[in-house]
Write a protein that binds this DNA or RNA. Sequence first.
DNA 1: GTAGTGGTGAGAACGATTGTCAAACCGGCC
DNA 2: GGCCGGTTTGACAATCGTTCTCACCACTAC
Lengths: 143, 143
Amino acid sequence: MQRMTRQRSAVADALTEVEEFRSAQQLHELLRDRGEGIGLATVYRTLQSLADGGEVDVLRSTDGEAVYRRCARREHHHHLMCRTCGRTVEIDGPSVEAWAAQVGASHGFIDIDHTMELYGTCAACAAHDAPTDRGPGPHEGAS
Amino acid sequence: MQRMTRQRSAVADALTEVEEFRSAQQLHELLRDRGEGIGLATVYRTLQSLADGGEVDVLRSTDGEAVYRRCARREHHHHLMCRTCGRTVEIDGPSVEAWAAQVGASHGFIDIDHTMELYGTCAACAAHDAPTDRGPGPHEGAS
DNA sequence: GTAGTGGTGAGAACGATTGTCAAACCGGCC
DNA sequence: GGCCGGTTTGACAATCGTTCTCACCACTAC
């Protein structure tokens, strides 16, 4: 149960090469451009099964699109993403885990889980922007 | 610019009463049930403008649906939500803010922003479940 | 070779959200 | 109070990401 097909390894390979989060549609387009004959539905299915198996991380971009990435580490970790170029850095948040569990417990909650992502502007992108005028970005409302 | 119409205040009122995160569709249904004649598009538009004005917090449920909530505090804060009943607690994360800024800076990122939500099972729901057998829940993959 | 099982892909279906546009409405002005 | 012009509304179409359907293909065991 779970064969390694041409399409499946193509998706896995693409994810390994690409270091950033990509949407299913982007990956599909990338694979088609590369000459891989692969259907969109297959890309979705494959990504989903990879995600189920913990092979890739999934998260939702702010506009609700699911984006996927193969991460170097399999343990729980977080990401710091450049909001301009999309460059991503994997980071640890040891204190966050502990803090989350503690806050949860203090409110009587158990089985605490959490999601957390950092966004910023990386050094390279900050340099490209007019250094004099970069108003307060569109800070997301929630959380 | 920005009139106070019947529909607009209906949405605002509904959000004030409901203490939990609700999707636009849920709010629309709630208002229709209540007898308010209001269109779905209007609910979306109103929620969006309320969110733009910082009147309500928006976040994405794990299945990509946008959910809205009027929060007691307007400053930045986080949420601890029961994954069973949806009950939500607003929490501070002072250490998180500092940690995020520090981690970002150490990677050369500026203008650090973050999203973070906690999920758990509240005491009431934990009690309702068979206390003997509640396997490890469907822990989300990412983050 | 043949049957069985799982994978694939084109397109339809679906659900959330946004765009369209004429009609209703709000608020200030007379 | 009544009028006027821009704003908001709402039914519906359109869009977009994602999932479903189903006939067909690939691989394995016999």
